[in-house]
Amino acid sequence: MAYATNVGVVTVIATEGLTKRYPRVTALDRLTVDIKTGVTGLVGANGAGKSTLIKILLGLSPATEGGAKVLGLDVATEGAAIRAGVGYMPEHDCLPPDVSATELVVHMARMSGMPPTAARERTADTLRHVGLYEERYRPIGGYSTGMKQRVKLAQALVHDPKLVLLDEPTNGLDPVGRDEMLGLIRRVHTDFGISVLVTSHLLGELERTSDHIVVIDGGTLLRADSTSDFTQATAALAVEVTDSEEQLLEKLTAAGLTAHSDGRLLLVDIAGDETYDTVRDAVAELGVGLVRMEQRRHRIAEIFRGESHDSAA
């Protein structure tokens, strides 16, 4: 993958035995994880400790035990310096309805210490980058959920941070809005050069966006890996044809592919780009209709389940 050859890879977040206990619940339990530059997906069910981790990383909530460094700065003592170089997009609504996106983002840029002129220029740039144009002068109260999410992202980016922490940025979006937001998040790293930590409780949606995936559950680290490691084992192509599934299975096996049937679907392990050609040719030779051919979704979900069983065993 691209990040492996990227010479700029450094650790942006490092936690060491990070523990956070509340009177009745342990939100984080000896979490040790290293997060590099790039897009990192932080996956966990609701209550897994994602938001607690973000609060600690911003230096706003002290750890009970252990420690963490963000951009090389200690969360316990250098919170203000961390927050100067980090952007944060909250999970919930956080936008006043009576001001325009421009006014809000300019104000927030100034709260990050940007001089007035720079704040206005950066606001105009950032809002355009997240895809808000003429509507940015209208009060936020009239925006759609997708537009509001963009404003929230813009205020996290306006001061040109080195890292942004995005808490459930796809929450409340419809499938199209979700894809657009994920594409935007990808661009934050590839085009803007800003590292991203993005949380989600939906396991499937982060795999296309993230270079790395960190899975936490009950405040403990379940797995941290690059996305390719996660998906390699089960990278599969689901093929559905109108007829003759068995002959197709034989043909594919004969062509050296690993495949098995799953109901009406054939699951073919992807050995490389040529796999698609092999499948297409085999289907064409049989003369049957190809209903669909798609990469299987929720692969991470399967791994996640597998890991849970392993760790439980």
Partner: peptide
């Protein structure tokens, strides 16, 4: 809930 936008800054 605008306050988090303030307190996540310096």
């Amino acid at each position: 809930k605008v306050t988090p936008l303030y307190f996540s800054r310096p």
